[in-house]
Structure formats: C-alpha cells, structure tokens
Design a protein around this nucleic acid. Sequence first.
DNA 1: CAATCTTTGCAATATTGTTGCATCTCTTTA
DNA 2: TAAAGAGATGCAACAATATTGCAAAGATTG
Lengths: 143, 143
Amino acid sequence: MESATRNNALVEKLESRSIKPTAMRLLVLEYLVQKDEAVNLSDVEQHFKNSDRTTLYRTLKTFEDKGLVHEIHDLSGSAKYALCADDCSCAYPEDVHVHFYCNSCKKTYCFPDRSVPSISLPDDYHPVSGDFVINGVCPTCRN
Amino acid sequence: MESATRNNALVEKLESRSIKPTAMRLLVLEYLVQKDEAVNLSDVEQHFKNSDRTTLYRTLKTFEDKGLVHEIHDLSGSAKYALCADDCSCAYPEDVHVHFYCNSCKKTYCFPDRSVPSISLPDDYHPVSGDFVINGVCPTCRN
DNA sequence: CAATCTTTGCAATATTGTTGCATCTCTTTA
DNA sequence: TAAAGAGATGCAACAATATTGCAAAGATTG
C-alpha cells in the first residue's frame, strides 16, 4: 500500500515531464529522490551494480533533456545530476541552481531555495540559465 | 625592445605567484594573456603543436596551484582555465568568478569585474570560493 | 665540479563520456 | 489477435579527457 502510493508519486513525477515510467527509470528516480546530494554516473552505477552503464547514462540524459534533473559541473571534474524542484524551469535568473561543493568529501549539495540576485551582463549576452557553485567545507567535514 | 618589455611583464607575473619562469611557462602565459576566453587543454595543445601534452597539462596545474589561473567547469564538460586578475585571491565572496558559457559556440568568457551579491548559507557550510556560470548565447552567435 | 632539485618528455593507464546496433517490450492498429 | 512500429535496454566498442611513473635534461647551490 505504502509502496504503491509512493510509486504513484514517482510515476506522476515522470509523467509530468513527459517521461515514460519504465521500471528502470522509476528505480533511478527513487534513488535520486532519496539522495540529498547530487550524484554522478559512477554513484548510480555503484548503486545499481547489475544494471547496464549505458542504460543508466541514458536514463540520466533523458531526465536532463526533459527538465527533471539538471547537470552540475563542479571541481570534481565529472558531471553530477540532481533533481529539479517541481516548479523549476532552469531559467535565468529565477531558477539559477545553487550548489555547495565540499573540497574535502567531494560531495555536492543542492540549495534549491536560495535565490540569486541577478547579475547585469553586457547587452549582447543572452542568458538562458545559470549555475552558482560555492566551494568550501561541508558540515560533516568540519571536524 | 618591445618584446623584451612584454617578456619582463610576464616574468614578473609568474614570479609574483612564486612560479619559476621557464620558457614553456612564459609561452603558455603569453597565450593565456592574449586570449580573451577560457581555454581547455586541447586548445593549448592545438596552439603548441610541438609541445608535449603532459607538460602543458602540468603547466596549467602549476598555474592553478599558485593562483595564477582558475579552473572553470562549464557545460562543455572539460576543464577550462583562465587568468585571475592580479589582485584576485579566489576567495568567497569578494572574488567569485563569473563566466558566460555560450551554448552555441561552447566558448567561455570571463567577467572578472562583476561582483556577485553574496548568498547566505546555512551556518555550518564554510565557503571558500565560488563560481558563477551563466549559460546562453554570446554576441557572436546571436545571428 | 658534484650533488640536488625541478622541469620536461615519453609512455602507459585510468576514468569518463558517447555511439552503433541488435534485441526486447510495449503500444497501436488493421 | 497478429503485425507493425516506436521506444527502451544491453552489449560492445570507441573517443576524449585526465593522470601517473619514470628517466632524461636543465637549473641551482655549496
């Protein structure tokens, strides 16, 4: 019952972004939902040891294409992914993604509700989206 | 004369960051100075066709370690490098690096003089540096 | 000059990102 | 229900990028 309910929420989440809710996609989405940090492809691979790398890769790309997740590029060098808020359209400047990258543990945390004062750009530069990554030390690594 | 003068400026730039001014480093620095956009390792390789990849790689890393350049991670996926301003210490929030990434031509432009209003973080997150990447279409690609 | 330290070049390897294609699954429709 | 089509998955291969070890070359210092 409980799991059916939860599952429905996941199905709806996918369908709201026009993504067909296959078994694999539901699993990956569930994984993303319960993670409070951004994940890279290796993380997902580790978690789904028996699944194919390419499928996971393409699942993430599909999620990204459809605006369900956004891609984050931090100092770790490899692309990470994190869920967008339901009402996120990734547009500048309203939906600038704010992240905190820990130099010590290399984790990247999302701060979805921080709004970033917009920056004025020269006239001919047309902003579409924005990513703000703050690097430092996270609470867990402070010691 | 002119070239000697310019060369001195480059030597000083390196020495001000405690980097030994070898021939290779001077050439790479000269290249970075005259570029108005961030470059990745391939760019540098292309420009110095006869030089060794590893040396160029390590030159950039040395520059980064010493605070002469900063690394930029944009949607292109590969690391780019750009010169820091002379008085830049890469510290948050004064020296947040602001860049514009063009989705069309994949170039990344620096906006060294934009200051970013600082964002309040939860208490236990200790910011050290920050990178703001704005994605969109650059003037050249507007057409 | 000898000893030492740094830089450079070459080779090899690791890691990450990406594509082609055959197969499978699900949905649609005659 | 059978056939067709579209999309998803799995496997294999490959491309691009990042990184390291080590030996040779060059610079530095006593």
